[in-house]
Design a protein around this nucleic acid. Structure first.
Lengths: 225, 225
DNA sequence: CGGGTTCTAGAACGCTGTTCTAGAACCCGA
DNA sequence: TCGGGTTCTAGAACAGCGTTCTAGAACCCG
């Protein structure tokens, strides 16, 4: 019930023409091309030259497909090289953390639908591997519980929140509605003086904004270095 | 196109039995009681003793209802008292920020569906008012652009990410699947040593965790105080 | 070659958001 | 008091959705 991850993969014989990997790849393609609304069991099947019902042999429900697709794209997040395992390593933890999180954010923005589908527990292997890496790096910084766990969650949540906010804003795909929103805000300068004066809805360097926030967070961690 | 906020409210004559406010209230009730899947135009109409199609006179699309419902619950977020407007005030900006964000998080957790529906631009008046308050408080701390905007976004995104993560995890409403997930993780101690050892999926004091993260972030801000 | 598992697929169910169309209810000026 | 135009309600219908049921192909192995 908790997701695909706890259920066993269907045992296959040799090379069934339709297996999970193909399904996931096709699902991601569909999502990338047409957005959340474009992912339909029927269209996904069609895209795989199969009948719609066939999918249900390999997958229990549409949510499974979504879970798999989500975890799939997190596989794109590069783990800064060097084995994450050796906790005694003297690699710069901060460089590792920043690299991981910047890449995490980039992956989500490359697949903007991911932000909209995030409201489900992420327990896939790719996500867990990245989280493990993150927490291991933070441990190297000297953090201990309960700050270690809190820092892990804080950083992960910061990335997730940033991606959700930004890609929902960008999903207004045409610049036109963005401008409309901006104009509308500018109208109400008496109500939102600070927001209007600092151009809260204006385009800005989002990557720089993200980096700054990340810096604040890392600077504030009670590390031992 | 960008949402309800830019379109004018339907001009009404005196007291039409079905107006936006009633619709929004009913929608929130429905969402609270039955979750995201429980909100249906038909059920919403039924709940209002109206025909399903009647709704479409007051609202252009279901997304409108969602946008309105979302902004509605953010109206529950208390603005720490004292007018936010006077930038010269010597109120403790940090107390204000912490109060606002804790309440923001609480409102989202009170309505867990909000996290799942967040993947849309939030431009409603309640959200904007809270954001304005947040940024005004940060301005009092001495922050200036570009750090001011970056801090605003960082804090808002942190809250959003935290709420999304936590309520998606809690949405596995029975403890049973949570335990299953934990057990499954414990199995793979070789793969995720740090996560397993720190009990990454175990229950923890989430409010405390959130507060810590908030502290790190605030501590790291390049304020002038 | 035969039998059981693995895999595919068509038809159908109940549900969804939304539109079309028609008509009721109401306000206001004559 | 009436008439007409606006405001509001609603039934029927459309295309599409996720999913299940059922039947039958395709394949592996003894």
């Amino acid at each position: 019930m908790t997701g695909v991850w706890l259920r066993p993969q269907r045992p296959s014989r040799s090379g069934p023409p339709l297996h999970r990997d193909r399904i996931v790849t096709a699902a991601v393609e569909l999502l990338d091309r047409e957005g959340v609304g474009g992912l339909t069991m029927r269209r996904l099947a069609e895209h795989l030259d199969a009948g719609p019902t066939t999918l249900y042999w390999h997958v229990a429900t549409k949510d499974d497909v979504v879970d798999l697709a989500l975890d799939h794209i997190f596989g794109e997040v590069r783990l800064p090289d060097g084995s994450a395992g050796d906790a005694g390593s003297d690699r710069d933890w901060r460089v590792d953390v920043e690299g991981l999180l910047l890449d995490w954010r980039a992956a989500m923005l490359r697949h903007p639908w991911s932000a909209a589908l995030l409201g489900r527990p992420m327990l896939g292997p790719n996500v867990l591997t990245r989280t493990e890496f993150l927490q291991a790096a933070l441990q190297r910084s000297g953090l201990v519980e309960p700050d270690l766990g809190a820092a892990t969650h804080a950083l992960a949540n910061y990335v997730i929140g940033s991606a959700v906010t930004l890609s929902s804003w960008q999903r207004l795909d045409a610049p036109e509605p963005r401008e409309a929103a901006r104009d509308h805000l500018a109208t109400q300068r008496d109500r939102y003086p600070t927001l209007v004066d600092t151009g809260h809805l204006d385009d800005r360097d989002w990557e720089d904004t993200f980096r700054r926030g990340l810096t604040y967070l890392l600077d504030g961690l009670p590390t031992r270095t």
